[in-house]
Amino acid sequence: MTTASGASPTRPPLGITALGAYAPARVISNADFEARLETNAEWIESRTGIRERRFAAEDEFTSDVGVGAVRDLLARDPDALSEVDAVICATVSPDALMPSTAALIAMQVGLTGVAAFDLSTACSGFVYGLSVAQGLILAGTARRVLVVGAEALSKVVDQDDRNTAILFGDGAGAAVVGPVPQGYGFQQFVLGADGAGGSSLYIRCAATKLPGGFEMAPGVGMNGREVFKFAVRVLGDSGNEVLAKTGLTSRDVDWVVPHQANIRIIEAANERFGVPMSRTVVNVDRYGNTSSATVPLALREALDDGRIQEGHQLLLVAFGGGLSWAAGTMRWWAGTPSLQPRAAAAAEVPA
């Protein structure tokens, strides 16, 4: 599925007009797993690229980390939520099945009465959310949309399961989608999903088995080998597809901002669409896999340290449970206060 740019002779293009991020204060290092799991810190880093991740506090949940990202956005630009009349929260660790986490976030940041709903495509959720936000605005349903990617995965992952416990962390990113000047903003999106791969990566809820009879274990289930193969293929293919739809090649890309699942996946996928690691934003070493929050966390960090600048051509690529995938191209605009680098502690995501 491909969705086109929002630009037209009578309508300005659409893009990100504000961006914030949040990571919980509690840092969990690889060494913290050694005492109770059959693993060691060096093995985890060599296999995944992860050195540490953040865990939410005992009384801190997905809506709380999402609100943290929105408050960071507002601290950078107090007027950032002006004209926002819809909220999308991409998450697979919602506070509850209902009410939506989006509604809980909206309430706490003063957006009472706006449209609000959750989006569940796992790690590709934030890029999905940007595309859906564009569609709402183009349809005339919304003027500006707040898209939040937020997760408290430490609450749902079995911390005694070595296959998954070492991978996931908590965090959030928040972006406002709205009009930007001509020549900037979203260009193309490519979205997709294949439910036949659902047994390779899932979080069990009401059902105990998937169509076809696959029995799901409680909590998070993952077939690491199958996910790796799928991720490398689909990241490369969707990245190449969205570049072709935009009329670009890998040489035109200033920065790739990928889903931060595993450094080996990122490296292998980059080879498929031909962008070197030197032009790829990576922070999986310090935050682990925060699912729908990885892309905005990485994007915010690269803005704060000055790597991403106005006019840069970006490629966003992600994959997730579903199995799902999403890729998008955009020309970066930096014309609002929240899109400027943070002067102090430039490389540090606010906690």
Rank of each mutant, 00 (worst) to 15 (best):
T3W: 12
T10Q: 14
R11N: 15
L19V: 10
L19E: 04
G20Y: 13
Y22F: 08
A23Y: 13
R26T: 09
I28K: 03
E34G: 03
A35N: 11
A35V: 04
R36C: 12
E38H: 08
T39I: 12
A41E: 10
E45V: 00
R47S: 13
R47V: 14
G49K: 07
R54S: 01
F55D: 00
E58M: 02
E60L: 09
G68I: 04
G68T: 08
A69G: 06
A69C: 01
V70N: 08
R71N: 13
D72G: 14
D72K: 10
L74V: 11
S82P: 15
S82K: 12
D85F: 12
A86D: 14
A86P: 07
C89Y: 11
V92G: 02
V92D: 07
P94F: 02
A96W: 02
P99H: 09
P99N: 06
T101S: 01
G110Q: 04
T112W: 11
A115I: 03
A116H: 05
F117D: 11
T121F: 07
S124R: 07
G125I: 12
G129Y: 08
L130T: 08
S131M: 14
G135P: 15
L138H: 09
L138A: 09
G140M: 08
T141L: 06
T141A: 03
R144E: 06
V145C: 07
A152S: 10
D161K: 05
T164C: 11
A165C: 06
L167N: 13
G169W: 02
G169A: 02
A174N: 12
V176G: 02
V176H: 01
V180Q: 02
V180W: 09
V180D: 09
P181T: 00
Y184C: 15
G185V: 01
Q187N: 12
Q188T: 15
D194C: 10
S200I: 04
I203W: 14
R204C: 07
C205T: 15
A206P: 15
A206D: 15
T208D: 13
P211V: 02
G212D: 03
E215W: 14
G219L: 07
N223V: 13
K229T: 12
F230P: 09
V232L: 05
R233I: 14
L235Q: 10
G236N: 02
G239E: 05
E241L: 12
V242T: 06
L243M: 10
G247H: 06
L248F: 08
S250T: 13
D254A: 04
N262Y: 01
I263H: 14
E267Y: 09
R272H: 07
R272E: 10
V284D: 05
D285L: 00
G288W: 05
G288M: 13
G288E: 01
S291L: 07
T294E: 08
L299S: 06
A302T: 11
A302F: 12
L303A: 10
D304K: 00
R307A: 14
I308V: 11
I308Q: 13
G311M: 06
G311C: 04
Q313C: 04
Q313T: 06
A318L: 00
A318Q: 01
G321M: 05
A327F: 03
T329A: 04
S338I: 10
L339C: 00
Q340W: 05
A344G: 15
A345T: 11
A345P: 14
A347Y: 15
P350W: 03
P350E: 11
